[in-house]
């Protein structure tokens, strides 16, 4: 595999052909914030947290799906990017009902961590206060749409790793919701194998272990990449 040499934040780095900017950056110890990206499943470039500037490119590019090119000049931490990232996070908070103080994920939440890292001290947009449901009809898990950021990590892990595709997205725009099977209560889903991979994958308090209380949802999403790597080696 051919090597590609380029710069990130004026630092000379090398990556492999076909690799994404995000992967190359991480290998070189450079941090790029992400939310919808999950190691072990396909990237979809949905959340735009990982946007970077590439010199000569008019638009900003999502690092999780943009491949490295020889000689490219990438910036990951400019004023403009910081500003956009903060806006994205604020919009995510304004879009649903995030009440961290009483949330099962409080203290262990990727969205919350991003907000802290970005220095979000308040939200400049009006909150939408949508009416969202909580579904705890499943015997082991629950889904709280108030906390969902529509990253589709649950959808992808269920489809690509468990091979079941219980999850999907229904509705558009503000009405979009993750759904199980044909939008029936999770507990009535006939496809769900109760494997819990979506629980591992979810970055927020949206999917939780039934019975979890405030701050109790700790999970390790790197297990998904581990499962995938282990399986690849066997087959």
């Amino acid at each position: 595999m051919a090597a590609r040499t380029f710069t990130i934040n004026d630092q000379l780095v090398s990556g492999r052909e076909g690799e994404t900017i995000l992967e190359a950056a991480r290998e070189n110890g450079i941090y790029i914030p992400t939310l919808c990206h999950l190691d072990g499943v396909t990237s979809v470039g949905a959340c735009r947290m990982c946007l970077v500037e590439i010199e000569g490119s008019r638009t900003l590019r999502p690092a999780c799906v943009t491949q490295v090119v020889e000689g490219m000049v990438v910036h990951t931490d400019t004023e403009r990017l910081r500003n956009y990232r903060r806006i994205i996070i604020e919009l995510l908070f304004a879009e649903r009902n995030h009440i961290c103080a009483v949330c099962v994920a409080n203290g262990h939440c990727e969205l919350q961590n991003l907000a802290i890292a970005i220095g979000m001290d308040h939200v400049r947009f009006d909150y939408a206060f949508p009416v969202c449901e909580v579904d705890i009809s499943h015997g082991r898990f629950g889904i709280d749409h108030n906390r969902c950021v529509l990253c589709t990590r649950c959808v992808r892990v269920c489809d690509e790793v468990e091979g079941v595709h219980t999850w999907d997205i229904a509705g558009r725009g503000a009405d979009a919701r993750v759904i199980t099977d044909m939008r029936q209560p999770w507990g009535e889903s006939t496809s769900c194998t109760s494997c819990g991979k979506c629980l591992l994958a979810c970055p927020t308090g949206a999917i939780f272990r039934r019975g979890a209380t405030v701050s109790e949802m700790e999970r390790d999403p790197t297990k998904i990449a581990f499962i995938v790597a282990a399986r690849d080696q066997r087959w």
């Binding site: 103080a101 009483v102 099962v104 449901e133 909580v134 705890i136 629950g142 709280d144 039934r210 019975g211 979890a212 209380t213 405030v214 701050s215």
Partner: peptide, 14 residues
């Protein structure tokens, strides 16, 4: 209203 029972101690403590 609408919250899972298990969250109630944490919510009401506030």
């Amino acid at each position: 209203e609408g919250r899972p029972l298990w969250e109630m101690p944490g919510i009401t403590a506030r």
